[in-house]
């Protein structure tokens, strides 16, 4: 049973932190100071994974017509356990029910200027694994994320987030209330691997679990 069985469209929101890997920002380099961005981000950069994207372990992920491959953002989902408004960084993790393995799938794109709805929000583009309880004292941002394609490791990234889980929750809740059951994706891989139809992809988060989905045409 995946986390998705407890998620209610309309009540629960899935927020995803974008550009939350230092390596992602470093790769953008001087472009962050050029048009259209003009300046590096100040507040957390966010996008949403709406209800049509929510999916479960084993569910096929459809590579849309016209795309040769989909990018596997992978990642760690912070599952909110109780309502959080303006939480202090030091208390932020106390508001979590646990962690979940997520795959923030998208069609590759290069501009971060406008919301990438057509790239990020296609049906089934956000499979979730099972909820794992948060072991006290664990920093979610220290857990390594691994992606395998057809059994072969193609990506493995450890810490290196711009904002830690606690910092991210503190900054988000300055302007939005997180409700019980909301999920915040901590940040996709800096270098998301690509997968083609016919391949099987597995996202593994150390101490949390794994998530396998086939890519189909």
């Amino acid at each position: 049973m995946g986390l998705i069985d407890s998620m209610v469209p309309g009540r629960h929101t899935v927020y995803a932190a974008a550009l939350n890997r230092s390596a992602t920002l470093a790769a953008l380099g001087d472009a962050l100071r050029q048009p259209p961005y003009q300046a590096p981000p100040r507040a957390p950069v966010l996008h949403l994974k709406p209800a049509n994207t929510w999916s479960r372990p084993g569910a096929p992920v459809r590579c849309p017509p016209g795309a040769e491959a989909v990018a596997l953002g992978g990642g760690i989902g912070l599952v909110v356990g109780r309502r959080a408004t303006r939480v202090a960084e030091s208390a932020a993790l106390d508001h979590l029910a646990g962690l979940v393995v997520v795959n923030d799938v998208h069609v590759p794109y290069s501009s971060h200027f406008r919301p990438a709805i057509a790239q990020r929000c296609r049906d089934g583009f956000c499979p979730f694994g099972s909820l794992a309880s948060l072991v006290s004292g664990t920093d979610p941002d220290r857990l390594a994320v691994t992606v395998e394609i057809d059994g072969r490791t193609v990506a493995r990234e450890g810490p290196g987030y711009v904002r830690s889980a606690a910092r991210l929750l503190a900054d988000l809740t300055t302007f939005l209330t997180l409700a019980e059951g909301d999920v915040v994706l901590l940040g996709e891989l800096a270098d998301p691997p690509l997968a083609r139809p016919g391949q099987s992809v597995r996202v593994i988060v150390d101490d949390v679990g794994d998530l396998v989905n086939p890519i189909v045409a």
Binding site: Y15, P36, L46, H112, A116
Partner: peptide, 10 residues
């Protein structure tokens, strides 16, 4: 609060 990332930002 406008920033030029996924604008208009949340």
């Amino acid at each position: 609060y406008l920033e030029n990332y996924y604008r208009p930002n949340l």
